[in-house]
Amino acid sequence: MTGLQTLLEEAAEHPAEHPAGLDVAADLRRGHRALRRRRARWAALGVTGGLVVAGGATYTALSVHHETTTEIQPTDGPTSSAPLRTTYFDVPTPPPGWHVVGDRPQYVMISRDGSDADLDTFAGQLVVMLSDGKEDYGVGSVEHFDGRTFYVNTENADDTILAVRADDGNWLQLQYPRTAFEVHTMVVYLDGVRLKPGAQPALG
């Protein structure tokens, strides 16, 4: 109970104790109005504080899933060189110092010149992959290019994995060493990949 409320109640119970000439009833009315105003201010502050806390919690929850969105300018456009035609994919010419090792229905392996990489060694390679469209690869920050949405997953220790929807609804992905290339360069590269008959999505 507040001090103001206590004084008001004592005044109401013992009006004779107040000096003559005072309008106790008027004082009580003014006191009650002041008390109501103070309670209204407290209530407003309490509601505002609650909204701040709730807003903060909401922001925290959203920030976990926040995606940085970047629009790649058309000047960064796709490579003008003719694509390399493999059995299951057409891919843009690899960056300087890299070459196509070969492909399987699910992926194309691209390795550094002079390396001994084979089709089963994924670490440190450029790998274009076709993955099942039912999987959830739409995670990470977002890059927009050529009217398409590319997802940039940087959760792996050394490699970044880009993902974009192919025309058939499956996911086209590109794994690349994070320190070797910029994201924008790899987005443009993946945008130039085309599927051929016989390409099959990897499961899981």
Rank of each mutant, 00 (worst) to 15 (best):
M1P: 12
L130S: 09
G140C: 00
P15T: 01
D103N: 04
G140F: 00
P177L: 07
H184K: 08
R165Y: 02
V100R: 11
D159V: 05
A123T: 11
G56A: 11
G31E: 14
P95S: 00
P74W: 12
L22R: 12
S115V: 04
G204E: 11
R33G: 10
A202K: 07
G56Y: 09
P96L: 00
V164E: 03
W171G: 15
F150N: 08
G97S: 07
H14N: 14
T60C: 02
R30D: 08
L84K: 06
D120E: 09
A16S: 15
V52I: 13
A202Q: 07
E9A: 09
L174F: 12
T93K: 14
P105Q: 12
G102M: 02
V193G: 08
F89A: 15
G31P: 07
T6V: 13
E182Y: 00
T86E: 11
P197N: 09
L84S: 09
V139W: 00
D120L: 04
L62K: 02
Q173N: 08
P92L: 03
L8N: 10
R41G: 15
L119M: 07
P201L: 05
E67F: 04
G114M: 10
P177S: 09
L51Y: 00
G138I: 00
T87H: 01
L119I: 02
R39Y: 04
D146N: 13
V47L: 14
G77N: 13
Y107L: 14
P177A: 06
W171N: 14
V128I: 14
G3M: 03
D159M: 03
P78R: 13
T70H: 13
L4K: 01
M1Q: 08
A26Q: 08
T2P: 02
E13P: 04
L7G: 02
T154I: 00
V127K: 04
T68S: 15
R30P: 01
G77Q: 14
A199R: 03
G133Y: 15
L126W: 09
P83I: 09
P19G: 05
E13G: 07
E9H: 03
D113C: 03
H66M: 03
G49I: 10
F145P: 06
A202H: 10
P95C: 00
R148K: 14
G140E: 00
P78Q: 14
M186R: 12
V127G: 08
H66L: 05
F181I: 15
T70N: 12
A44W: 01
G56S: 13
F181Y: 15
S81E: 10
K134D: 11
L126N: 06
L203T: 12
L190F: 06
M186H: 06
T185R: 10
D103H: 01
T86D: 07
S141P: 11
R30K: 13
G97Y: 02
D118C: 01
G49C: 13
A16V: 12
S141V: 01
G124Q: 11
N170T: 03
Y189I: 00
G49H: 04
A117G: 08
D120M: 03
P83K: 12
